[in-house]
Design a protein around this nucleic acid. Sequence first.
DNA 1: GTAGTCTTCTAGATCGTTCTAGTCGCACCA
DNA 2: TGGTGCGACTAGAACGATCTAGAAGACTAC
Lengths: 332, 332
Amino acid sequence: MSELQRRPTLMDVAEAAGVSRALVSIVMRGAPGAAESTRQRVLDAARQLGYRADSRARLLRSSRTKLLGLTFSSSQPFHAEIVDAAYAEASARGYEIALSAVASGRPEARAIETLLDVGAEALIIIAPTLNVEDLALHARQVPVVSLLRDNVGDLVDSVSSDDYAGIAIAVDHLVGLGHSRIFHVDGGTAVSSDRRRETYRTEMIRRGLQPVVVPGGPGEEDGMGAGQILQADLPTAVIAFNDRSALGIMESFRAAGISIPADVSVLGYDDSHFAKLSYVQLSSISQDAPLLAAAAVGRAVDRIEGAKSPGSVVRTPHLVLRKTTARAPAAT
Amino acid sequence: MSELQRRPTLMDVAEAAGVSRALVSIVMRGAPGAAESTRQRVLDAARQLGYRADSRARLLRSSRTKLLGLTFSSSQPFHAEIVDAAYAEASARGYEIALSAVASGRPEARAIETLLDVGAEALIIIAPTLNVEDLALHARQVPVVSLLRDNVGDLVDSVSSDDYAGIAIAVDHLVGLGHSRIFHVDGGTAVSSDRRRETYRTEMIRRGLQPVVVPGGPGEEDGMGAGQILQADLPTAVIAFNDRSALGIMESFRAAGISIPADVSVLGYDDSHFAKLSYVQLSSISQDAPLLAAAAVGRAVDRIEGAKSPGSVVRTPHLVLRKTTARAPAAT
DNA sequence: GTAGTCTTCTAGATCGTTCTAGTCGCACCA
DNA sequence: TGGTGCGACTAGAACGATCTAGAAGACTAC
């Protein structure tokens, strides 16, 4: 019964309002150059017909698409937070966001191509896995902003969180609480795991303390495994690669009757949803996703509008104190 | 130094290869009607220039866009799973996916409009919050598939999981283990909370058992709160609205020294990531996101290609047995 | 009264594709 | 010899918007 009806075009509205296509275009864009009376007449006609501009045609013709391409990984909760914040910041600055997911069977390169095909004026790539050359290749076409990764060559912008500072804050905090046996459970092959591990080592050594790194990974199970290993030679404090790992560590301690923070302090990284749960109350290093996202969007827009050369923004993370870190137990 | 270079068009390739635009188009699309020798020549030229078709122009001209619009909520991990699976199924059926997120400050209506503007041939909306009239309005333009919600009027397709069956399976399972004091912690205002709650009631009554519903919600904190309430009058089994709620419930029990499943069995819903963790091992009702996603994509494609009238697909969930449900303790 | 300026409007080109309707050779067959 | 069919290719019109250039009319200025 209800056959699919062709969507109305500028032409349809023009006929209905008795004006030219061009004038309708002017009115719809809110551009100056139309009398108030005709403006109303056109708007009425458009409303009546349910007219909406076809973005394909619009984007094709106009040099400016006002589109920011954003890739994210569907399996990373942290990325979802960024997507959310990016939308807000983009629309505040008058841009739209074109999303493209990196999923299983859909590599980053594919996600990026899709965004370019669709006319994105800049690319924001969360934790890019592409090598510097490939990134540079794209950067010759449009401004590219790397989010959460900073060694990306000098053709692409980067917005990242200062892992050095983050780990330093973590070590400082624990040392300040009187800890000296502070171990680190690393993130295995995860992005920025290497840097955090090395920073942990140097920060410990700088304070005359003995660094001990236990191999881990980005998930709860990884933390769980590391927790088992830690129990053989228990430190007084643990810095986990991230919150999920910290959760696994704590779980393994709990099972072994080791109490937190009385026996051992645990510090997470990311200040994620999990850390905030009332029954977790994990002290954590916050990278502040919304701020990072806003900075990335800002950087992309600046590059599009203001030219200039690429640069890198580094935000300093901060400690969110909760209940899993406390003074070191009296030495045994 | 490296000025942003205009991306090559069909025309550029045509000139380089010494043929017409139309022929290049034919070759690039892999359409028949070009000699093998020229085909190679054109492909070489295209590769040399780094040519990629501009999807805006392509979509504008061709009646078929082969685009499936998919809305999802950036804050729902369950949606991420679906996105992942949808990509796979769509590309298997020769379609692309256009993503649009529902985020804070970006309502569903906005997300849908974006998808239509971009030329999506069908809409897949995960857990739509729009009312039946608004959905029908869109359904007059393109096929609309509602995922995870089924009372959507007779103009739109729906693919959902059978909540009746899911809860029936849950009750069956627990009754089979000898439980009779089975309580339900509901999902508050969350989608499908009402249905699960009512089904729980009727299923209990059908078996001559007394239903007890404790108000909850979709998050861990909600479960935590419900857990406190439950402790005042402890059942032998609890059916949670979802896994996250179950986690909160279990956490509250653990704090009170109530052991699972010895004292009380807990059953989750969704079979999410959390349920699978080695230290959680939550028995749960699985809705099988990948299968739902595949069904939704399939339905959308069928509607686009084969016409026919809208219909609804209902998938039966199944029980995933782990360690949080066990025989009822001997009656006191 | 003519030129200049402003406002309001329009015709037509244009963006980069795809599609329609050819043209051009050339072999085949009666 | 002269249609006919076929394969390879092309010119030009779409698609639905934006943009440029300029026209028409009203109003001011000298």
